[in-house]
Amino acid sequence: MKKYLLPSLKLTLVLIIICSVLYPLFIAAVSKLAPGGGKGETLKVNGKVVGYANIGQKFTADKYFWTRPSAVDYNAAGSAGSNMGPTNAEYLKQVQDRIDTFLVHNPSVKKEDIPAELVTASGSGLDPNVSPHGAYVQVARIAKARNISSEKVKALVVQQVQKPLLGLFGPEKVNILKLNIELDQLK
């Protein structure tokens, strides 16, 4: 094996320069042209950063649209799912509790209309989205808490629904952070 050791060593060093130095530096340089300059795209309100466009935030107040339950409490220093199995009794009790809480805050919603994503934790713990239906069921609560008409709130949601990719592939969704920023502007 000795005669293979020297080429191995040299080849390793050369490839580290190519794959670990030049390649990521090149990508970092090109990404300066991308939205957010490769640092992640942020959203601002009155010049102040309120969050990252792709990263969900915790919303629990009645006057905001809620995001999904999170195993990391929406702190993007880390990321994780709950890793609860579908038959785990402890987990099923958590889901039942979330359903009960949702019904208390949204008395006009029927139980079967509660969207699954609002009572289950996301894979990353940072999911920025809910389905359009997941936003619609919250409209009545928000209209009441903000004392504005539910038509206005609903119209805002309709405007914020993101269509599938090219209108053809994947699910429809709503970015809750963007929606709540717009909601605060609503008179």
């Binding site: 709950s82 579908p86 699954a116 994503e117 289950t120 996301s122 999911d127 989205n129 997941g134």
Partner: peptide, 10 residues
Amino acid sequence: TGAMEGKEVR
């Protein structure tokens, strides 16, 4: 929306 535990809406 299916079995959403551990999944992302997008």
